[in-house]
Nucleic acid binder design. Structure first.
Length: 156
DNA sequence: GCCAACGTTGGC
DNA sequence: GCCAACGTTGGC
């Protein structure tokens, strides 16, 4: 089963927000590469919930896909901050959303700095120079490594 | 707030 | 189809 990582600004939508609501819709992705990853997701796939553009960027918890990709309604909703006029005018919606459920909130965020410092994670797309991709696959070995790191940082 | 890196747009 | 200009992402 594939694993994923998805970025969100915690001011907008954090792992604790997801925890409170239990489920949510992951929408607003407006990059084709990221969208293609969304479309590859299947129910029960797990993902790392990454907090970006915040005091401590890093992996904050785990979520699970509960519904595979479907047309992103925010693209055609003029009230949405993710409204895409081009999509709305075209009658065809190229953007995708998935539904997600909360699995776990880490006691502490596993910071990006720790991920970058770990040689076993050198291949991770997240730590590549200049990577801005907001939805990306995570290899099984990397997944296991990141969970180990998250667990051990909680034990401190 | 700065800036590097990247994606997108639009003139030609 | 090229490529400069612009906008966005996201760490620092």
């Amino acid at each position: 089963m594939p694993y994923w990582l998805m970025k969100s600004e915690p001011d907008e939508f954090s792992v604790t927000d997801l925890e409170k609501r239990e489920t949510g819709r992951w929408d607003g992705v407006r990059n084709y590469q990221a969208r293609n990853h969304l479309r590859a997701m299947q129910p029960d796939d797990l993902f790392l919930f990454y907090h970006s553009s915040c005091p401590i960027p890093g992996v904050a918890g785990i979520g699970r896909i509960v519904r595979g990709a479907y047309p992103d309604p925010t693209a055609t909703d003029p009230q949405s901050p993710y409204f895409d006029p081009k999509t709305a005018g075209s009658g065809r919606n190229p953007w995708s959303a998935v539904d997600v459920a909360h699995v776990e909130t880490f006691a502490q965020v596993l910071p990006l700095t720790a991920l970058k410092a770990e040689p076993a994670l050198a291949e991770l797309a997240l730590v590549q120079r200049g990577s801005r991709l907001s939805v990306m696959p995570v290899g099984e070995r990397e997944w296991a490594q990141i969970l180990r790191m998250a667990r051990s940082s909680q034990a401190i």
